[in-house]
């Protein structure tokens, strides 16, 4: 499973990092740390578009860990 730390970055960077990892084809499961609600929404939309699911694993204040799974 690939892990990405996108904390402190604002979109489109977290979205670009997520998309790059999903399209690399090496992992079916990707975990991303973000700290901006807009990024979670954006990554969710980008994932849905190319057939991946987003699950919010944990949320602590501003920080969230989301998991992307290939459908």
């Amino acid at each position: 499973m690939k892990k990405i730390d996108a904390k402190g970055l604002s979109c489109p960077q977290p979205m670009l990092m997520a998309k790059k990892a999903m399209e690399a084809g090496t992992d079916d499961k990707i975990e991303i740390q973000v700290d901006c609600a807009a990024s979670v929404e954006n990554i969710g939309r980008a994932a849905k578009q190319i057939g991946w699911n987003l699950t919010v694993l944990s949320q602590d204040g501003d920080e969230a860990v989301v998991e992307l799974n290939k459908r």
């Binding site: 979109c11 489109p12 670009l16 807009a38 939309r45």
Partner: peptide, 19 residues
């Protein structure tokens, strides 16, 4: 809503998104 005119075109070019 995160409304953004720049983001609208950027996301279209980068992600083919029309949201």
């Amino acid at each position: 809503s995160r409304f953004c005119t720049m983001g609208a075109l950027r996301d279209l070019f980068l992600f083919r998104q029309t949201h």
